[in-house]
């Protein structure tokens, strides 16, 4: 079976600053990859580049999604093809109810697949079912998207969106930050339920703790726009213990060598 995502020597910059400096990563169906790394190392940038944010310019390298060149696709096309990004900072959309928004999103994806619009009853049933999954309060459905949501509610809402839209590749950018321990378990549970053979995840996090609940197949450490170390889930434990400085030192040595 071919990879879901293949990143080859990817370099990307924003406003002339090179942020990603040659990233290679292969993600096969069903795998969960965790990405860790210090603040400002480029984790969110990678996620945004994969989602198609225009400000980030790919200067070299290649990204294949289901063997197709991803760089030619608009953000909405990528989303419709099954790439989902749970934002580190979910955006508020005043005046647009969460349900209305989600229905528009789901229908855009369905239309892309040649399916007809979901009818109101089926949609409601689907939404109810997925809300239970993330223990989300029903009132958040009627409220405008993310407007006035607490930090934790926003993160939960991202997972809720993901559960409804059922992507092929889920990119979670620090979905665990700002969550209390119960919420963390709920979010992890939401992801675990969605885990299946033909769906993959990239989980960006600062905390090994999350990885107790979402057990990754691989852990990568991103420092200064490069993956400096990859390993199994034990790598996360090692990082928890030692921090990033020993890796940063290695990178420094590498750069000056």
């Amino acid at each position: 079976m071919s990879a879901i995502l293949e990143i080859k020597d990817l370099c990307a910059s924003v406003e002339g600053n090179e942020i990603l400096k040659g990233i290679s990563l292969t993600i096969n169906p069903g795998e969960v990859h965790a990405i860790m790394g210090p603040n400002g190392s480029g984790k969110s940038t990678l996620a945004q580049v994969l989602a198609g944010r225009e400000e980030y310019e790919i200067t070299s390298g290649e990204v294949l999604y289901k063997t197709e060149d991803l760089t030619d696709m608009d953000p909405e096309e990528r989303a419709r093809e099954g790439i989902f990004l749970a934002f580190q900072y979910p955006v508020e959309i005043p005046g647009v109810s969460n349900t209305y928004f989600l229905k528009a999103a789901l229908n855009a994806i369905r239309k892309h697949r040649g399916e007809k619009e979901i009818d109101a009853v089926d949609f409601l049933r689907l939404v109810r079912e997925k809300m239970k999954l993330v223990h989300m309060d029903e009132s958040l459905l009627r409220r405008p998207v993310n407007e006035g949501f607490s930090g934790g509610e926003k993160k939960r809402n991202e997972i809720f969106h993901m559960a409804v839209l059922e992507p092929t590749l889920g990119l979670l950018d620090e979905t665990d930050s700002g969550l209390d321990i119960d919420a963390l378990k709920v979010v992890a549970e939401g992801v675990n339920v969605l885990r299946q053979d033909d769906r993959s995840f990239v989980v960006i996090t600062h905390y090994q703790r999350l990885l107790n609940y979402i057990v990754p197949d691989f852990v990568h450490v991103l420092v200064d726009g490069r993956i400096v170390r990859s390993g199994g889930k034990e790598l996360a434990l090692e990082l928890e213990e030692k921090g990033y400085s020993w890796l940063e030192a290695e990178v420094g040595a590498l750069a000056t060598a």
Binding site: A51, D74, E76, A79, R80, F84, V91, I93, F101, A108
Partner: peptide, 13 residues
Amino acid sequence: DQLFYCNQRGIST
């Protein structure tokens, strides 16, 4: 940011 968020959910600009 808002438009990108919508795009990322499959909604056209």
